[in-house]
C-alpha cells in the first residue's frame, strides 16, 4: 500500500517538475535601442510575379521602409523564367534580361530572397531586418549625392533623364559606381497564394541599368569630390512620374560602400 502511494506521489511530482517557470509577459521581450543610421543600406530583392509567397516579402519591405525611411533603399529585381513575367512579352511583365542576369550571377534559385549591401549573401526575408540594422550602424567612408531630371528640352520630349552624381569620399576608395532606374506604383499582375491579383501595386521595381550591368570603374582620393553626368532614355510604357534613380558604389571586397536614391523630377522652364 505504502509502495503504491509513494509511486503515485512520484508520478504527480514528475508531472509538475516538468513545467517551466514562465516569465511575466513584460519580462520576455527585450526592447532594442533605436538604431543610429550612419549610412544607407541597399537591398536587392529577387522576386517574381508568379512567385506565390513573394507578397509576404513585399510586406516586409514596406515595414522596413516605414521604419528606416530614406536610409533603406530596396530594389525589386524580377527574375527567373520559372517565376517571372517578361517585359518583352508584355508591358505587364516586370522581368528584364538585366535583372534575370543579376539573379543568375548571385545564384538566386529560390524566390523570394535578397542580398544586402552585397555582403550578406542570399538571405531569406525573415533574416533581412537584423542584417539591415547592423549594416545601417556602420560608419561610411563615402557619401553620394544624386539628382535626376526629366529633360523636357531634348528632342526626345519627356523621355530622357539627365542624372548628376557627386561622390564625396572620406577615405581613398576604389570601386564601381552603379546607376539604376526604378519605378514604383506599377499596377500589374502578381500571384499571391494561389490566385493572381491583376492590379497589384509593385514598388521599387528595377527597370534598367544606366551605365552597364556592373557599373563604371572609379578610383577616388580622400576628400576630393568627383562629379559625373549620365543620361538615359526611358521606355514609353514606364510612368515617368514614378521613376527614381538608385546610385551605389561597390567593390568585390567590401560590397556596397554607400547608396543613395532620388526621385526623377521634371525640369521647369521660364514659361511655366
Amino acid at each position: 500500500m505504502k509502495k503504491y502511494i509513494y509511486s503515485f506521489v512520484c508520478c504527480i511530482a514528475a508531472i509538475f517538475a516538468a513545467c517551466d517557470d514562465v516569465d511575466r509577459l513584460e519580462d520576455r521581450f527585450i526592447p532594442l535601442p533605436q538604431v543610429e543610421a550612419k549610412r544607407k543600406v541597399l537591398l536587392e530583392e529577387f522576386t517574381g510575379q508568379r512567385c506565390v509567397n513573394c507578397p509576404t516579402a513585399h510586406l516586409m519591405i514596406n515595414d522596413l521602409k516605414t521604419q528606416y525611411g530614406e536610409n533603406f533603399i530596396p530594389v525589386g529585381i524580377h527574375a527567373t523564367s520559372a517565376f517571372g513575367l517578361s517585359e518583352e512579352a508584355s508591358p505587364l511583365g516586370l522581368m528584364n534580361s538585366e535583372g534575370d542576369a543579376y539573379a543568375k550571377h548571385w545564384n538566386s534559385n529560390a524566390l523570394p530572397c535578397g542580398i544586402i549591401d552585397r555582403t550578406s549573401g542570399l538571405l531569406d526575408y525573415d533574416k533581412w531586418a537584423a542584417y539591415i540594422r547592423t549594416e545601417m550602424e556602420k560608419e561610411p567612408n563615402l557619401n553620394i549625392e544624386v539628382t535626376a531630371v526629366m529633360d523636357t528640352l531634348s528632342s526626345d520630349l519627356d523621355s530622357l533623364i539627365r542624372i548628376e552624381v557627386k561622390l564625396l569620399p572620406l577615405t581613398g576608395v576604389t570601386g564601381k559606381l552603379q546607376l539604376w532606374i526604378t519605378e514604383s506604383e506599377i499596377y500589374a499582375p502578381q500571384v499571391d497564394g494561389s490566385n493572381y491579383i491583376m492590379d497589384y501595386q509593385h514598388n521599387h521595381v528595377f527597370r534598367a541599368c544606366v551605365n552597364g550591368a556592373w557599373g563604371t570603374e572609379m578610383t577616388l582620393q580622400p576628400n576630393i569630390y568627383t562629379a559625373s553626368e549620365y543620361s538615359y532614355k526611358i521606355k514609353k510604357h514606364w510612368n515617368r512620374k514614378k521613376l527614381s534613380v538608385v546610385a551605389f558604389l561597390y567593390n568585390n571586397n567590401e560590397g556596397v560602400l554607400q547608396a543613395e536614391e532620388c526621385d526623377v523630377t521634371f525640369e521647369t522652364t521660364e514659361n511655366n
Binding site: T80, A82, N109, L111, D124
Partner: peptide, 17 residues
C-alpha cells in the same frame, strides 16, 4: 518540380539541385 512549402519557391534542376 516546383516546391515552396510556405516560404521561398524553388524549381528542381536549376543549379543542379
Amino acid at each position: 518540380v516546383k516546391f515552396c512549402f510556405g516560404g521561398d519557391c524553388q524549381v528542381s534542376g536549376i543549379g543542379g539541385i
